[in-house]
Nucleic acid binder design. Structure first.
Lengths: 344, 344
DNA sequence: CTTTAGCACTCTGACGGGACGAGTGCTAAC
DNA sequence: GTTAGCACTCGTCCCGTCAGAGTGCTAAAG
């Protein structure tokens, strides 16, 4: 692949940019004017023919211009693209919209909106994976005759409560005891570590027949069960995709939206981006999911305390303005990280 | 309007049903076969001409069949419609999917999914209006140096927490005092009543300079502020609408989806249904919102302890199977009410 | 007076051909 | 290596035609 001549590269770049701009197959004539090289259309045609040979462009039909293929886009984003640095006012604006006072869920929602607003495409942000976060404390409050409210504090920004149905009534004092016991045992530990120890203790304690501890542990187990939600994401700005000419067909659009509802597959795809540091791009069928056929996905992971805990990105047509979208996704990831890490 | 002859009614009914069934303008020939009356197409045409005069049907173009107008639909649903009673197995299935263990938010989400799944249209459920519900208790927990977690228990199913940023650190003991004080004062009272008393006390207490009480009240005020979210709704199954032939145009579809995102207008519409007991129907432009032009909305309010606290319903094309949708909406409202009222 | 048959009329949608424009590939000349 | 010229191929747009569906009207039958 590296044996593309400089000229061929320039032309592929010009062609792709042009096609991204106005969505029409690009002919040799416009390319001659557009590319800056002082060449006649005929020469251009020769070079383009080579590109076609290599599978980087193709023509939709005999006498139309050329359109980048998936490989063409790949080369374009990997080696030809000149990303526009984000101007500072933009960064400021982004930062401002993600004020740090909100809780995690809010932040994620806002980040998603932000991405979709700024790119005019669909924004997607996974909820932070909390299984590696530590348990700060647990509280139990009596709610009614046979209901107990469990409050799980994960960190400064993340609190979850769940309602437990109990076999009998528990008094405030009893519950307080439970809380104290559990906090002494588990506070500060990782959630999955807690889970593990919990099960071990549960087995052991059953044998020693310490009713109170057993109950406390069972309760804790229940809470963790409900708290350990599967991963999920927040999507925003799907309607933006309806403006895109590629999806003028309702059938296509429907497929896409149904994929969004399914979540499983999209999540699988997003999971692949977790390892990769920095911006990652899936173009069209590269994703392996054919409902994202004419879509590209631009993602970046975000971290808390150095650990990657989620992914955010933008979904749009393959024909999207990568040079604009990439820095935006990148910046948003950094800003979200900053917002999540701020401990004020 | 009541001066429709029996025959005209029968024909309008047959025509509407037929049109709902297959979406094509209905001609006199099919109507002659379909309506059960033993009349020739020619006779039918005369009657239909009268209906057109009355504005109940219209033809899309000169030599097409007829289509019901909004007024036509109105007459149809108000006086001609024979709603199918829901068979019991269906009711059972509905009940089952709304198990009562979930919390309010979950229930609402599930109800919405249910509506959309069963009707194959879009389901919509407003979140319960909680401003008339009573405050069961308040708890404050220290979270970190200058953060306090406030837990607001509204009732057995509804717990909210919010994180307060405080001016200085408060100890567990202090916070416990606050909780006790507030619970003594306000537990069991309506939320807006609490709010009112709170403001009054706040003024008074400032003068007496009781620092502790003042702080407690201020905190409570903050919590109430965050807890009193504006009304909102949960929508499900929008993708179902993409299968509907009426919305084959992406532009239309987009308008509709953007209206869903706006929420304000839809909420305004739903609010109108709160007063009305039982199922209410908006057909097409009747709603007054032109983004719902070719849509109908079938709603029913749901209650808790006798008070209407929300609305649920279905959004679909005017050409929807009312006789099926109406009982489903009705039943779902009852089932949701049962689920919300169960106090086990 | 109501119902019906017959008929002319109108409109839509599908099909097909011709003109046009865009763009290519090839060849031969620079 | 580059370019101009030219024949060729498609896709699109614009009719004109034709069949089908359904109407409105009129005149006859019940």
């Amino acid at each position: 692949m590296a044996e593309l001549t400089e000229r061929a590269q320039t032309l592929l770049k010009a062609l792709t940019e042009r096609y991204i701009r106005d969505g029409q197959p690009v002919g040799s004539r416009v390319l001659a004017r557009d590319a800056g090289l002082n060449l006649s259309p005929a020469t251009i045609r020769n070079v383009i023919a080579d590109l076609e040979e290599l599978g980087l462009v193709r023509s939709p039909h005999t006498s139309a211009g050329r359109v980048p293929t998936v490989s063409g886009y790949r080369v374009f984003v990997d080696t030809l693209l000149s990303v526009q640095p984000l101007d500072n006012s933009m960064v400021g604006a982004l930062k401002q919209s993600l004020d740090t006072t909100a809780d995690t869920k809010d932040l994620v929602q806002k980040a998603s909106n932000l991405l979709s607003d700024v790119t005019r495409l669909a924004g997607i942000v996974t909820l932070p994976q909390r299984k590696h976060s530590s348990l700060q404390r647990v509280e139990f409050l009596p709610l009614s005759e046979k209901k107990v409210l469990a409050v799980l504090v994960l960190d400064d920004k993340e609190v979850r409560n769940s309602i437990l149905n109990t076999a009998r009534h528990y008094s405030s004092a009893e519950l307080q005891q439970f809380s104290n016991f559990l906090n002494a045992q588990f506070a500060g530990k990782d959630l999955d570590e807690v889970r593990e120890k919990l099960l071990a203790e549960l087995r052991e304690t059953r044998e020693t027949l310490d009713r109170m501890m057993a109950t406390a542990l069972e309760m804790a187990d229940q809470v963790l069960g409900t708290a350990e939600q599967g991963s999920d994401y927040v999507l925003a700005g799907q309607t933006n995709l309806m403006g895109v000419t590629e999806f003028c067909d309702v059938g296509r659009l429907r497929q896409l939206f149904e994929a969004f509802n399914e979540k499983k597959e999209i999540l699988g795809l997003l999971d692949q981006c977790v390892e990769n540091e920095g911006v990652q791009i899936f173009i069209g069928e590269e994703s392996g999911y054919q409902m994202l056929d004419e879509c590209s996905l631009v993602t970046a992971p975000y971290t808390v305390k150095g650990k990657v805990i989620g992914v955010l990105g933008v979904i749009g047509p393959t024909r999207m303005a990568y040079e604009r979208v990439i820095p935006i996704v990148d910046a948003t990831a950094r800003i979200l990280r900053a917002a999540l890490n701020s401990q004020d």
